[in-house]
Design a binder for these strands. Structure first.
Length: 254
DNA sequence: GGTTCACCTGACGCTCGGCA
DNA sequence: TGCCGAGCGTCAGGTGAACC
């Protein structure tokens, strides 16, 4: 682990301990023992996202857990995870997870989403993304989710996605033109045993990221080689109901 | 009780430059 | 080369009220 990663690790630890309070970039920089200017750049370089968005992801991950495992109302949940305005919480949650807090709870954590194409971009002549997902111990992994996202953090609805039985080759068609990230997640096989039960933590989760890639009109983009590694604390939390989406996709397929 | 929306604020991204 | 400070424009996120 480099000195930068150690500093980011300290800051992320501070976020996990204090996400329910007001945490500023100055606080995090002080914990990391760097100036706030340099810290922001360093954090972005190590994690791929800004400190503020990382903190938001932690808060939403905790909110998902509270919504599924308790009967606390949305207002109380918003306060418990650090939001002073339930309006902000509701809006942020809906954008990141794909459904509102009450929909998420009523669906038991299974977000009935579809991999959507975006029509706002130049998508009349979409491209193809292809590549391969590898892992150090592929036999220990269950099904693999591969999605195309606008950013480095898996939130909102994926532009396009696919599910593999195991690490291996993939192909995603009809990807709109633009600059995207390809993100992949997989659970260890023992956790897949409980696939139908909503998953609300990162235990046994392996992640891989690639990008940004530029998809051109009618062009096959790749190979995109994704390597799944066990999720570290400094990897961005999975905000989107990715695993739950995977479950619903499998339900449809089955 | 929960969501949406307009407005506002502060964090962020980018860039340049200084220092050791 | 690594660390840090600062200015400035942009935009994500926070607030609070209206609405369902």
């Amino acid at each position: 682990m480099t000195s930068s990663e150690r500093a980011v690790d300290r800051a992320v630890g501070y976020m996990f301990e204090n996400f329910n309070e007001k945490v500023t970039v100055e606080d995090l920089a002080r914990v990391a023992m760097f100036s706030k200017f340099y810290f922001t750049r360093m954090f972005q370089r190590v994690t791929g996202i800004s400190p503020g968005r990382f903190l938001t992801a932690i808060r939403l991950q905790e909110a998902k857990r509270l919504l599924l495992t308790t009967s606390i109302n949305v207002i109380e949940v918003s306060h418990l995870v650090g939001y002073s305005s339930v309006g902000t919480f509701s809006t942020t949650f809906s954008k990141a997870v794909g459904v509102s807090p009450t929909e998420y709870r009523s669906g038991g954590g299974v977000a009935q989403l579809r991999c959507q194409s975006r029509t706002s971009r130049n998508s009349h002549n979409p491209g193809v993304v292809h590549g391969k997902v590898t892992a150090e111990h592929p036999d220990e992994l269950g099904v693999v989710f591969v999605g195309v996202f606008p950013g480095r953090i898996p939130q909102g609805r994926p532009i396009k996605c696919t599910v593999l039985d195991r690490p291996g080759h993939f192909r995603i068609d009809d990807v709109p033109n633009g600059e995207w990230y390809v993100l992949s997640h997989s659970l260890s096989k023992d956790r897949n045993e409980v696939l139908r039960v909503p998953v609300d933590d990162d235990l046994g989760l392996s992640v891989g990221a690639y990008g940004p890639i530029t998809v051109g009109a009618g062009v096959s983009c790749g190979p995109v080689n994704l390597t799944l590694t066990p999720k570290r604390m400094i990897d961005p939390p999975v905000v989107l109901a990715l695993l739950e989406i995977r479950s619903s996709i499998l339900t449809e397929a089955g």
